[in-house]
Design a protein around this nucleic acid. Structure first.
Length: 309
DNA sequence: CGCATTTGACCCGCGC
DNA sequence: GCGCGGGTCAAATGCG
Protein backbone atom coordinates (compact mmCIF):
# COMPACT_ATOMS: atom_id res chain seq x y z
CA UNK A 1 0.00 0.00 0.00
CA UNK A 2 2.84 2.32 0.84
CA UNK A 3 4.65 2.25 -2.45
CA UNK A 4 1.80 3.10 -4.79
CA UNK A 5 2.03 6.88 -4.56
CA UNK A 6 5.71 7.39 -4.03
CA UNK A 7 7.48 5.03 -6.40
CA UNK A 8 7.36 7.62 -9.14
CA UNK A 9 8.66 10.44 -7.03
CA UNK A 10 11.93 10.61 -8.95
CA UNK A 11 11.98 14.35 -8.65
CA UNK A 12 13.16 13.88 -5.11
CA UNK A 13 16.80 14.36 -5.87
CA UNK A 14 17.94 13.93 -2.34
CA UNK A 15 21.13 12.24 -1.40
CA UNK A 16 19.82 11.28 2.00
CA UNK A 17 21.97 8.25 2.47
CA UNK A 18 25.33 8.76 0.79
CA UNK A 19 26.95 5.97 2.80
CA UNK A 20 24.65 3.27 1.54
CA UNK A 21 26.80 0.56 -0.13
CA UNK A 22 26.32 0.31 -3.84
CA UNK A 23 24.34 -2.67 -4.98
CA UNK A 24 25.92 -4.60 -7.79
CA UNK A 25 22.60 -5.01 -9.55
CA UNK A 26 22.21 -1.26 -9.71
CA UNK A 27 25.32 -0.86 -11.84
CA UNK A 28 24.38 -0.77 -15.52
CA UNK A 29 26.35 -3.31 -17.45
CA UNK A 30 28.54 -2.17 -20.27
CA UNK A 31 29.17 1.40 -19.08
CA UNK A 32 32.64 2.60 -18.28
CA UNK A 33 34.20 5.83 -17.13
CA UNK A 34 32.53 8.94 -15.74
CA UNK A 35 29.24 8.73 -17.66
CA UNK A 36 28.62 5.20 -16.44
CA UNK A 37 29.39 6.14 -12.87
CA UNK A 38 27.02 9.15 -13.01
CA UNK A 39 24.16 7.12 -14.44
CA UNK A 40 24.77 4.48 -11.85
CA UNK A 41 24.74 7.09 -9.09
CA UNK A 42 21.50 8.64 -10.41
CA UNK A 43 19.81 5.26 -10.50
CA UNK A 44 20.86 4.45 -6.98
CA UNK A 45 19.67 7.86 -5.76
CA UNK A 46 16.31 7.31 -7.40
CA UNK A 47 16.00 3.93 -5.82
CA UNK A 48 17.08 5.36 -2.48
CA UNK A 49 14.49 8.13 -2.74
CA UNK A 50 11.87 5.55 -3.52
CA UNK A 51 12.83 3.53 -0.44
CA UNK A 52 12.74 6.60 1.76
CA UNK A 53 9.39 7.67 0.37
CA UNK A 54 8.02 4.22 1.05
CA UNK A 55 9.36 4.30 4.56
CA UNK A 56 7.89 7.77 5.13
CA UNK A 57 4.55 6.67 3.79
CA UNK A 58 4.57 3.57 5.96
CA UNK A 59 5.40 5.58 9.08
CA UNK A 60 2.75 8.16 8.22
CA UNK A 61 0.07 5.53 7.86
CA UNK A 62 1.22 3.88 11.09
CA UNK A 63 1.05 7.22 12.81
CA UNK A 64 -2.43 7.77 11.42
CA UNK A 65 -3.57 4.40 12.72
CA UNK A 66 -2.17 5.09 16.15
CA UNK A 67 -3.87 8.48 16.20
CA UNK A 68 -7.16 6.85 15.29
CA UNK A 69 -6.70 4.24 17.99
CA UNK A 70 -5.94 6.90 20.53
CA UNK A 71 -9.02 8.88 19.54
CA UNK A 72 -11.08 5.72 19.80
CA UNK A 73 -9.70 4.99 23.25
CA UNK A 74 -10.46 8.52 24.34
CA UNK A 75 -14.01 8.22 23.14
CA UNK A 76 -14.45 4.97 25.02
CA UNK A 77 -12.89 6.45 28.11
CA UNK A 78 -15.16 9.51 28.02
CA UNK A 79 -18.21 7.31 27.54
CA UNK A 80 -17.22 5.10 30.45
CA UNK A 81 -16.51 8.08 32.63
CA UNK A 82 -19.85 9.70 31.95
CA UNK A 83 -21.55 6.37 32.73
CA UNK A 84 -19.64 6.19 35.98
CA UNK A 85 -20.62 9.73 36.89
CA UNK A 86 -24.27 8.93 36.16
CA UNK A 87 -24.18 5.84 38.35
CA UNK A 88 -22.42 7.61 41.17
CA UNK A 89 -24.72 10.61 41.11
CA UNK A 90 -27.71 8.26 41.29
CA UNK A 91 -26.15 6.50 44.27
CA UNK A 92 -25.39 9.74 46.06
CA UNK A 93 -28.95 10.97 45.47
CA UNK A 94 -30.27 7.79 47.10
CA UNK A 95 -27.94 8.29 50.04
CA UNK A 96 -29.10 11.85 50.52
CA UNK A 97 -32.66 10.61 50.86
CA UNK A 98 -31.64 7.96 53.35
CA UNK A 99 -29.41 10.14 55.47
CA UNK A 100 -31.28 13.08 56.84
CA UNK A 101 -28.38 14.75 58.52
CA UNK A 102 -25.84 16.58 56.49
CA UNK A 103 -22.91 15.33 58.50
CA UNK A 104 -23.88 11.76 57.88
CA UNK A 105 -23.97 12.51 54.19
CA UNK A 106 -20.53 13.96 54.50
CA UNK A 107 -19.38 10.78 56.12
CA UNK A 108 -20.29 9.07 52.88
CA UNK A 109 -18.66 11.91 51.01
CA UNK A 110 -15.27 11.09 52.43
CA UNK A 111 -15.90 7.40 52.79
CA UNK A 112 -16.87 6.84 49.20
CA UNK A 113 -14.03 7.89 46.97
CA UNK A 114 -16.25 8.14 43.94
CA UNK A 115 -19.16 10.12 45.28
CA UNK A 116 -19.70 13.49 43.65
CA UNK A 117 -21.53 15.66 46.08
CA UNK A 118 -19.67 18.89 46.46
CA UNK A 119 -21.76 20.68 49.00
CA UNK A 120 -19.60 19.93 51.97
CA UNK A 121 -19.57 23.57 52.90
CA UNK A 122 -23.13 24.33 52.07
CA UNK A 123 -23.92 24.73 55.73
CA UNK A 124 -21.10 27.18 56.20
CA UNK A 125 -21.36 29.42 53.19
CA UNK A 126 -24.10 31.54 51.78
CA UNK A 127 -25.90 29.79 48.95
CA UNK A 128 -24.83 32.33 46.32
CA UNK A 129 -21.22 31.91 47.25
CA UNK A 130 -21.60 28.16 47.29
CA UNK A 131 -22.75 28.17 43.68
CA UNK A 132 -19.93 30.49 42.73
CA UNK A 133 -17.23 28.45 44.44
CA UNK A 134 -15.65 25.81 42.30
CA UNK A 135 -15.06 22.63 44.28
CA UNK A 136 -12.99 19.75 43.06
CA UNK A 137 -11.52 16.74 44.75
CA UNK A 138 -8.45 14.70 44.11
CA UNK A 139 -7.58 11.43 45.81
CA UNK A 140 -3.90 10.67 46.00
CA UNK A 141 -2.69 7.24 46.93
CA UNK A 142 0.33 7.49 49.18
CA UNK A 143 2.04 5.39 51.75
CA UNK A 144 -0.33 4.89 54.71
CA UNK A 145 2.58 5.27 57.12
CA UNK A 146 3.41 8.66 55.66
CA UNK A 147 2.02 11.21 58.11
CA UNK A 148 2.65 14.10 55.77
CA UNK A 149 -0.63 15.55 54.50
CA UNK A 150 0.99 17.55 51.76
CA UNK A 151 -0.33 16.87 48.26
CA UNK A 152 2.18 18.09 45.73
CA UNK A 153 0.25 19.77 42.96
CA UNK A 154 2.68 22.42 41.85
CA UNK A 155 1.07 25.27 43.73
CA UNK A 156 2.44 26.87 46.83
CA UNK A 157 0.28 26.24 49.88
CA UNK A 158 0.37 27.71 53.34
CA UNK A 159 -1.12 25.63 56.09
CA UNK A 160 -3.38 27.62 58.35
CA UNK A 161 -5.09 24.98 60.42
CA UNK A 162 -5.52 21.38 61.30
CA UNK A 163 -8.51 19.71 62.84
CA UNK A 164 -9.45 16.24 63.96
CA UNK A 165 -12.92 15.58 62.64
CA UNK A 166 -15.53 13.48 64.30
CA UNK A 167 -15.83 10.75 61.70
CA UNK A 168 -12.18 10.32 60.84
CA UNK A 169 -9.29 9.51 63.18
CA UNK A 170 -6.80 11.21 60.91
CA UNK A 171 -6.62 15.01 61.08
CA UNK A 172 -7.80 17.31 58.32
CA UNK A 173 -5.31 19.96 57.22
CA UNK A 174 -6.36 23.35 55.83
CA UNK A 175 -4.24 25.12 53.25
CA UNK A 176 -4.42 28.45 51.47
CA UNK A 177 -2.71 29.22 48.18
CA UNK A 178 0.27 31.41 48.99
CA UNK A 179 1.71 31.69 45.51
CA UNK A 180 -0.14 34.94 44.81
CA UNK A 181 -1.48 37.44 47.33
CA UNK A 182 -5.27 37.41 47.59
CA UNK A 183 -5.58 34.08 45.83
CA UNK A 184 -8.90 32.74 47.13
CA UNK A 185 -8.17 29.04 46.63
CA UNK A 186 -8.26 26.79 49.66
CA UNK A 187 -7.40 23.17 49.99
CA UNK A 188 -8.40 20.59 52.58
CA UNK A 189 -6.44 17.39 52.87
CA UNK A 190 -7.48 14.39 54.90
CA UNK A 191 -6.82 10.70 54.82
CA UNK A 192 -9.73 8.53 53.91
CA UNK A 193 -11.28 6.87 56.93
CA UNK A 194 -11.71 3.62 55.04
CA UNK A 195 -8.42 3.57 53.23
CA UNK A 196 -5.64 5.37 55.13
CA UNK A 197 -3.40 5.13 52.11
CA UNK A 198 -5.71 7.53 50.26
CA UNK A 199 -5.26 11.25 50.69
CA UNK A 200 -8.40 13.20 49.82
CA UNK A 201 -7.64 16.75 48.74
CA UNK A 202 -10.59 19.12 48.33
CA UNK A 203 -9.94 22.29 46.35
CA UNK A 204 -12.23 25.30 46.67
CA UNK A 205 -12.22 28.30 44.38
CA UNK A 206 -10.17 29.26 41.39
CA UNK A 207 -6.64 30.56 41.25
CA UNK A 208 -6.35 34.18 40.19
CA UNK A 209 -2.85 33.64 38.88
CA UNK A 210 -0.95 31.42 36.47
CA UNK A 211 0.21 28.03 37.58
CA UNK A 212 3.82 28.25 38.82
CA UNK A 213 4.77 25.19 36.77
CA UNK A 214 3.37 26.69 33.56
CA UNK A 215 4.92 30.03 34.31
CA UNK A 216 8.26 28.25 34.47
CA UNK A 217 7.59 26.55 31.18
CA UNK A 218 6.61 29.79 29.49
CA UNK A 219 9.65 31.59 30.77
CA UNK A 220 12.04 28.93 29.56
CA UNK A 221 12.43 28.08 25.91
CA UNK A 222 13.09 24.41 26.61
CA UNK A 223 10.46 21.73 27.13
CA UNK A 224 8.52 22.69 24.04
CA UNK A 225 7.41 19.14 23.43
CA UNK A 226 5.93 18.99 26.88
CA UNK A 227 4.13 22.26 26.32
CA UNK A 228 2.70 21.00 23.09
CA UNK A 229 1.64 17.86 24.82
CA UNK A 230 -0.06 19.73 27.60
CA UNK A 231 -1.82 21.96 25.19
CA UNK A 232 -3.49 19.08 23.46
CA UNK A 233 -5.07 17.64 26.58
CA UNK A 234 -8.77 18.07 27.05
CA UNK A 235 -9.83 20.35 29.84
CA UNK A 236 -10.59 18.54 33.03
CA UNK A 237 -12.93 21.38 33.96
CA UNK A 238 -15.17 20.41 31.12
CA UNK A 239 -15.19 16.84 32.32
CA UNK A 240 -16.37 17.95 35.71
CA UNK A 241 -19.67 19.30 34.47
CA UNK A 242 -22.13 19.89 37.27
CA UNK A 243 -20.86 17.26 39.62
CA UNK A 244 -17.53 16.86 41.25
CA UNK A 245 -15.87 13.59 40.27
CA UNK A 246 -13.11 12.25 42.37
CA UNK A 247 -9.83 11.36 40.81
CA UNK A 248 -7.66 8.71 42.40
CA UNK A 249 -3.96 8.84 41.75
CA UNK A 250 -1.83 5.88 42.65
CA UNK A 251 1.42 7.48 43.69
CA UNK A 252 2.75 4.29 45.18
CA UNK A 253 3.41 2.87 41.73
CA UNK A 254 7.04 2.88 40.88
CA UNK A 255 8.18 6.19 39.56
CA UNK A 256 4.79 7.76 39.79
CA UNK A 257 5.43 9.40 43.10
CA UNK A 258 8.30 11.29 41.56
CA UNK A 259 6.46 12.09 38.37
CA UNK A 260 3.53 13.24 40.42
CA UNK A 261 5.77 15.57 42.33
CA UNK A 262 6.89 17.05 39.06
CA UNK A 263 3.76 17.06 37.02
CA UNK A 264 0.70 16.69 39.22
CA UNK A 265 -1.19 19.93 39.06
CA UNK A 266 -4.33 21.42 40.32
CA UNK A 267 -7.36 19.77 38.79
CA UNK A 268 -7.85 22.74 36.46
CA UNK A 269 -4.37 22.87 35.08
CA UNK A 270 -3.44 21.14 31.84
CA UNK A 271 -0.37 19.58 33.40
CA UNK A 272 -2.51 17.94 36.00
CA UNK A 273 -4.91 16.77 33.32
CA UNK A 274 -2.02 15.26 31.44
CA UNK A 275 -0.88 13.43 34.51
CA UNK A 276 -4.43 12.37 35.16
CA UNK A 277 -4.87 10.90 31.71
CA UNK A 278 -1.59 9.06 31.95
CA UNK A 279 -2.62 7.72 35.32
CA UNK A 280 -6.01 6.59 34.12
CA UNK A 281 -4.49 5.03 31.03
CA UNK A 282 -2.02 3.09 33.14
CA UNK A 283 -4.83 1.99 35.47
CA UNK A 284 -6.79 0.72 32.49
CA UNK A 285 -3.85 -1.07 30.96
CA UNK A 286 -3.12 -2.82 34.25
CA UNK A 287 -6.51 -4.46 33.97
CA UNK A 288 -5.86 -7.75 32.11
CA UNK A 289 -9.41 -7.87 30.77
CA UNK A 290 -9.11 -4.39 29.35
CA UNK A 291 -5.75 -5.22 27.78
CA UNK A 292 -7.15 -8.39 26.27
CA UNK A 293 -10.18 -6.63 24.82
CA UNK A 294 -8.08 -3.77 23.54
CA UNK A 295 -5.58 -6.14 21.94
CA UNK A 296 -8.41 -7.96 20.19
CA UNK A 297 -9.91 -4.70 19.00
CA UNK A 298 -6.59 -3.36 17.79
CA UNK A 299 -5.58 -6.54 15.97
CA UNK A 300 -8.96 -6.61 14.28
CA UNK A 301 -8.55 -3.02 13.19
CA UNK A 302 -5.02 -3.47 11.95
CA UNK A 303 -5.96 -6.57 10.00
CA UNK A 304 -8.77 -4.64 8.41
CA UNK A 305 -6.41 -1.82 7.50
CA UNK A 306 -3.87 -4.19 6.02
CA UNK A 307 -6.43 -6.03 3.95
CA UNK A 308 -7.71 -2.72 2.67
CA UNK A 309 -4.23 -1.77 1.59
C1' DC B 1 15.39 37.40 61.39
C1' DG B 2 11.77 36.11 58.46
C1' DC B 3 8.78 32.76 57.05
C1' DA B 4 6.15 28.49 57.63
C1' DT B 5 3.94 25.37 60.69
C1' DT B 6 1.59 24.07 64.91
C1' DT B 7 -2.08 24.24 68.00
C1' DG B 8 -5.45 25.88 71.21
C1' DA B 9 -9.11 29.25 71.23
C1' DC B 10 -12.79 31.27 69.11
C1' DC B 11 -16.63 31.86 65.71
C1' DC B 12 -20.63 30.40 63.54
C1' DG B 13 -24.12 27.47 61.42
C1' DC B 14 -26.96 23.54 62.05
C1' DG B 15 -29.85 20.16 64.38
C1' DC B 16 -32.32 18.90 68.34
C1' DG C 1 -31.35 28.09 73.49
C1' DC C 2 -27.81 24.86 73.73
C1' DG C 3 -24.42 21.71 72.25
C1' DC C 4 -21.78 19.88 68.55
C1' DG C 5 -18.55 20.18 65.08
C1' DG C 6 -16.24 22.28 61.09
C1' DG C 7 -13.62 26.28 59.78
C1' DT C 8 -10.54 30.10 60.88
C1' DC C 9 -7.53 33.01 63.64
C1' DA C 10 -3.41 34.17 65.81
C1' DA C 11 0.18 33.52 69.22
C1' DA C 12 3.81 30.30 69.96
C1' DT C 13 7.22 27.59 68.08
C1' DG C 14 10.45 25.69 64.72
C1' DC C 15 13.57 26.02 61.02
C1' DG C 16 16.80 27.64 57.51
Amino acid sequence: MESKSFVNSTSLDLNLNPFRPMDDEEVPKGFDGVLGAQACEKASIKKEAGHLAEELDRISSENKKLTEMLAHMRENFNALQSQLIDIESKNSTKEIFIKSRKRKAEEEYFGNMFSHSSDEDSCKRPKAEHFKTKVSRVCVRTDASDTNLAVKDGYQWRKYGQKVTRDNPSPRAYFRCSFAPNCPVKKKVQRSAEDPSLLVATYEGEHNHMHPFRADQLSSSSGSSQCANLGSVHSFSSMRSSSCPTVTLDLIQSGLRESAKNSIQHADSPAFQQFLIQQMASSLTRDPKFTETLAAAISGRINLDYTLN
